[in-house]
Design a protein around this nucleic acid. Structure first.
Lengths: 192, 192
DNA sequence: GTCATTTCGCAACGGTGCGTCTCGTTACTC
DNA sequence: GAGTAACGAGACGCACCGTTGCGAAATGAC
């Protein structure tokens, strides 16, 4: 076999052009031809390796390290979650990140299959972190045994997604409100 | 003034065609020309009255009665919220409704301004219902005074939005999990 | 009923991007 | 060094965009 390998340089150039274009103009203003020009790459090269604009976005999302903060595990669940969710929402203040998030939502609303796959790969690690942390708290007796940890984790994701969809970030007060209610919701307190 | 009025028949025909096309092919497969053909209306007639595809969707959403269930006010907040959220999620089992919801998300992810306006008009009445109900519960001593009712209402909306974005409905168990956690979260229970 | 006026359907326009194709060139593997 | 596949450049037909001009139909004013 005499094969010339795929140009990794061209690939990275296209993905970078996609990220730049997203931040500048938004997902559906991006065109393949514009991408090719911006990346200084032939249009055919793009079509050779990606089936669609959405697929390029997918790779850009998976490859570009979506920097999600770590969820620390001290002995105080509330503090851990508050710190994590605060860091999470501060990520959303960077325009490039919100552009990526909005693009993810746009492509998910359009291409359900690819959207599900992307969301799975991006959200699952976060969900797992939260679920694991909640299970630790359950063993420590800080969280009720009958709490559906995945449902709670999903609520954090949902709130984040919805707020970046609407372009309104999560201010400190809102972060506190969400964490407070959810913390009390999973806690051992009884209802009188 | 001798004026021939706008054809209401044509208008309704276009909006109906938009709803049909959304359910059939999804928002970004909809084209103005296809809409015109389907509605048996001239393309010019569409451009005379709507500035964009998104604007047509906006009217279709506002005009078509997005049937949101009422939030009853018995003396049991948990039951009221559970009944309302269950009804809400059952709405999402109708494909036509999820198509509308996904289209709303798609246009919001693309056109932030129009999206915000639409979300405001569609979500605000729901949020107000929930906030009002929570305030009643606060006066009845069932909900803590320091609870941010709007933040809680937003969480319901966010969960609904996110689940219809991903195309996975909210099953009974998930509805229960969300309501349970939020109910305990706003309740008077103390944390030990 | 007639007339003025506006919307209507029809159809064409140039422009943009799509996705495919062909070419000649370049760069990598063997 | 030779063979081969990816590369850049650019053209193709196609779909849809948003705009324009036209004659016909419809409606309110009188």
């Amino acid at each position: 076999m005499v094969v010339r390998p795929r140009s990794e340089k061209a690939r990275q150039s296209v993905l970078a052009a996609m990220r730049r274009a997203l931040a500048a103009d938004g997902y559906d203003a991006v065109t393949i031809e514009g991408l090719a020009a911006e990346a200084e790459v032939s249009k055919q090269t793009i079509y050779r390796w990606w089936p669609s604009k959405a697929a390029i976005l997918g790779e850009a999302l998976l490859e570009g390290e979506l920097p999600t903060p770590d969820l620390r595990a001290t002995d105080d669940l509330a503090t851990d979650l508050r710190a994590w969710f605060t860091a999470m929402s501060s990520r959303a203040e960077d325009g490039a990140n919100t552009a990526l998030a909005r693009a993810l939502i746009a492509v998910t609303a359009t291409d359900a299959e690819l959207g599900l796959a992307l969301n799975k790969r991006l959200a699952d690690p976060i969900v797992e972190q939260i679920v694991a942390r909640l299970e630790v708290a359950q063993r420590a007796g800080q969280v009720r045994e009958d709490v559906d940890a995945a449902a709670v984790a999903d609520q954090f994701i949902a709130v984040s997604s919805y707020s970046s969809l609407l372009g309104r970030g999560l201010d400190e007060a809102r972060v506190s409100a969400v964490v407070d209610v959810l913390m009390r919701g999973v806690g051992m307190g009884s209802i009188h």
